[in-house]
């Protein structure tokens, strides 16, 4: 998806500017294709099973396999460990940043990822007619899709965004439930 560092000897690097601009092109095209910002937000996050260019959720579903193949991270025992791995290993690997983890809920099922700088928005300014666009909503879809594949249903949403004038970018993650393994139907 982005920088492909740390791949043994054949470490490939990609210009982060090219990546940022490519993402911008994707969002712009979606804005042209869909009437209003809500639909674009949904598309960025959503499940598009029959789409050749998988976004958000679909990227997550595949990205998690790449992540596991490269990082050698095993199963996480609790949500806190998951949060650590997301922030310190996954974000570092794919976006080159390490968000901080804060605002744990007392029950330990919700936390916030604070992105000091978001590489996706390096060159971005939201025009007035797109005030409700959640520009980086793709990240939420990726997180949701990836965690679902390791049997964790979560909800991810932006609650602060530098594009909307906030000081930092904040993604709120909420643990919903563990998805249990089931024996496929029709077997005894």
């Amino acid at each position: 998806m982005s920088r492909q560092a740390n791949r043994g000897t054949e470490s490939k690097k990609m210009s982060s500017e090219l990546f940022t601009l490519t993402y911008g092109a994707l969002v712009t095209q979606l804005c042209k294709d869909y009437e209003n910002d809500e639909d674009v937000n949904k598309q960025l996050d959503k499940i598009l099973f029959f789409c050749f260019l998988p976004r958000g959720y679909n990227i997550g579903v595949r990205l998690i396999e790449d992540f596991l193949a490269r990082s050698n991270v095993g199963k996480c025992h609790d949500f806190r460990e998951t949060a650590d791995v997301i922030a310190k290993v996954a974000f570092k690997m794919y976006l080159g940043i390490t968000p901080s983890i804060t605002n744990w809920s007392p029950a330990g099922d919700e936390f916030s990822l604070i992105l000091e700088n978001n590489p996706l928005v390096d060159f971005v300014e939201l025009p007035d007619n797109h005030s409700s666009l959640i520009y980086s909503n793709l990240l939420c879809g990726v997180l949701r899709g990836a965690l679902e594949m390791v049997q964790m249903a979560v909800e991810a949403k932006f609650i602060q965004d530098t594009l909307k004038g906030d000081g930092v970018t904040e993604i709120r993650m909420r643990f919903i439930r563990r998805i249990e393994d089931n024996l496929p139907a029709g077997e005894e």
Binding site: F52, L53, P54, V61, R62, E65, D66, L68, A69
Partner: peptide, 18 residues
């Protein structure tokens, strides 16, 4: 087999449905 073959050739190929 998982990381260098399945992930590289199937998961990263958008034309291969999972």
């Amino acid at each position: 087999i998982y990381s260098a073959l399945y992930v590289e050739l199937v998961v990263k190929n958008p034309l291969c449905p999972l």
